[in-house]
Amino acid sequence: MNASQIFQQVMKQAGGQGRSQDSAQSGSGSGVKDMVDGLSRQLSGGGSGSGVDMKSLLGGGTLGALLGSKGGRKMGGKALKYGAIAGVGALAWKAWKSSQQSSSGDENGENDGADRVEVLDGDGQERRSLELLKAMIMAARADGHIDEDEQALISGQIEDMGADEELSRWVEQTLKEPLDAKALASEADSPQAAREMYLVSVAVVDEQNPMERAWLDQLGSALELGDDVTAELERQAQQAG
């Protein structure tokens, strides 16, 4: 499979979308405003067709497909958390270090963040990329509203990014298998992987949605992260935007 190649592209998409948001919020450019205006027109019946074309509003790409109908809700209340995806490894490590400030020493023997997804290579990066892609897909499904058309959109977007046949089959399977936080957590290959899995999940869900909030709580418990760490990961995600 070529999961690492695909996840690196997802991170780059997130970085690009995050810069568009920063530009719009600072007054240069109109990325977010255009998205919101377009969404408002479609919701009010001004767009063509009966559905909300989130792929168009979000600039296309796998991120738009993963966010799907969630994008409309998030745009109404807060910025999408692209930054948490673009810098997932560094932010997850920063969150852990911040949560440990009140502790003496390095309890888990982690002192350099050497297994962040950004610095892994070879089989290690491939495995971590699969873990994070799966966490994102499961989080996107947490509200139970991804239908067959949206599943096909996600699969198609990942194929367009250059997924090989094996990865494409894996994506289709992941879109259909039962939501199981414990099973997902069991795939984390290190404490850093667990933090990254939780962080990308936070980036995709709307915490105000009870079903999505419940999924985060289940995942955090299954990953055995602890309340301090999950709270700090969520804080970092919000700050990253």
Rank of each mutant, 00 (worst) to 15 (best):
N2A: 12
A3C: 14
Q5N: 15
I6W: 01
F7V: 00
Q8V: 06
Q9Y: 02
V10I: 14
V10Y: 02
M11Y: 08
K12P: 01
Q13D: 10
G15N: 04
G16T: 09
Q17F: 05
G18R: 07
S30P: 05
G31I: 02
V32G: 10
V32A: 15
K33N: 02
D34Y: 07
D34E: 05
V36C: 07
V36I: 07
D37A: 15
S40I: 06
S40V: 07
Q42C: 09
L43W: 01
G47V: 04
S48T: 13
S50C: 04
G51L: 08
K55Q: 12
S56F: 12
L58P: 02
L58T: 05
L58S: 11
G60P: 01
G61K: 04
L63D: 13
L63Y: 07
A65I: 06
A65R: 09
L66R: 02
L66E: 04
G68K: 14
S69I: 07
K70V: 09
G71C: 10
G71F: 14
G72L: 11
R73K: 11
K74H: 05
K74F: 07
K78W: 01
L80A: 08
L80W: 13
Y82K: 03
Y82F: 14
A86T: 03
G87K: 12
V88L: 09
G89P: 00
G89W: 03
G89Q: 04
A90V: 05
A92V: 15
W93P: 00
A95E: 08
A95H: 11
W96V: 08
Q100F: 08
Q101P: 03
Q101T: 15
S102G: 12
S104R: 12
S104Q: 14
G105Q: 14
N108C: 15
N111D: 13
D112K: 13
D115P: 10
E118H: 03
L120C: 01
L120E: 01
G122L: 00
D123T: 15
Q125N: 09
E126R: 01
R127Q: 02
R127M: 00
E131W: 10
M136C: 12
I137K: 09
I137Q: 06
A140T: 05
R141I: 02
R141Q: 08
A142S: 15
D147Y: 12
A152N: 10
L153S: 09
S155K: 14
G156Q: 04
I158P: 00
E159W: 00
E159M: 10
D160V: 11
M161Y: 03
M161Q: 07
D164Q: 09
D164K: 10
L167Y: 12
R169K: 15
W170H: 04
Q173Y: 14
Q173I: 15
T174E: 07
T174S: 13
L175H: 14
E177Y: 06
E177M: 13
L184D: 08
E187H: 12
E187C: 08
A188Q: 10
S190A: 08
A193L: 02
A194P: 05
M197L: 07
V204Q: 02
D206P: 06
P210A: 12
P210C: 08
M211D: 01
R213H: 06
R213Q: 04
A214M: 11
W215V: 09
L216G: 04
L219E: 01
G220D: 01
G220Q: 04
A222P: 04
A222T: 05
A222L: 12
L223I: 06
G226M: 11
G226E: 02
D228H: 12
T230D: 01
E234P: 04
Q236A: 13
Q239D: 11
A240W: 03
